[in-house]
Amino acid sequence: MHPLEAPTFQLAFLVYFVSLALSGAYMLSGARLAERGALAALTAGVALQTLNLTARSLEAGRAPFSNLYESLAIFAWGTATCLLAVQWSRKTPAAGLTVLPLVLAALGYASTLDARIEPLMPALRSPWMFYHVAAAILAYGAFAVAGGLGMLYLIRHSLEKRTTAPSWIERLPGLGPLDTWTYSTIAFAFPFMVLVLVTGAIWAQKAWGTYWQWDPKETWALITTLFYAGYLHARQFTRWRGLRSAWLAVIGFLVVVFTYLGVNLLLSGLHSYASG
């Protein structure tokens, strides 16, 4: 293991936690220092994780895509990076409250797994693995952020219905912006999700001789794509906006979690690489 790998992993976890704590402090107190500190900590966390993954890549001689430990670490990085993009462009740390727990959970679970660098199996030695996993990281990370924004919408919507809403509600973004940002994030992620299917199919054709076999992982990736395609169509052509859209974003992320982890743990198939 590269000497930088373990310290940067642990530091990144700690810094993400600090960002989450500062986001919470900003929501409760409204302190500008806490708001800026949350964004700064998130930026530092992403930088540390980038360093961590770079160190591992240099040590392994390949991208860190081959087992569940690496997959969780790269998923956490992808989610944190998408969150950073949203927070810097929208100038609000509120989304960190619902998204950073996911990042911490992914890193925490990864820390319990075997982190040894293993040589790649023959089936994984393909440039298509990079394209396939890179597209998945971007898509899943953005869907995670969209799910977090949808959760924020539900929280704010629920608080607004009370007769006396807490004072910190005003530090949450408004329902209109949250709805728009959720849609924008999903719209950004959707083409990458389709790329996951496309690159996976081409890779499967080269490795296994057929581009589609209704393998559980393939099927659930398709289901995830169909779900968000339905979301985009429903939003574009019907009145499924606002509250309904938020619920769909949250449910959609649960579908993503099942596709990403549930299939590996509960169903068997050709995609057994990331089961441990």
Binding site: W214, T219, W220, L226, F227, A229, L267
Partner: peptide, 14 residues
């Protein structure tokens, strides 16, 4: 159609 197709496909995985 997307919803029905997704539900059927998920059934096939279990």
């Amino acid at each position: 159609l997307l919803v029905v197709w997704a539900l059927l496909a998920s059934l096939g995985t279990v």
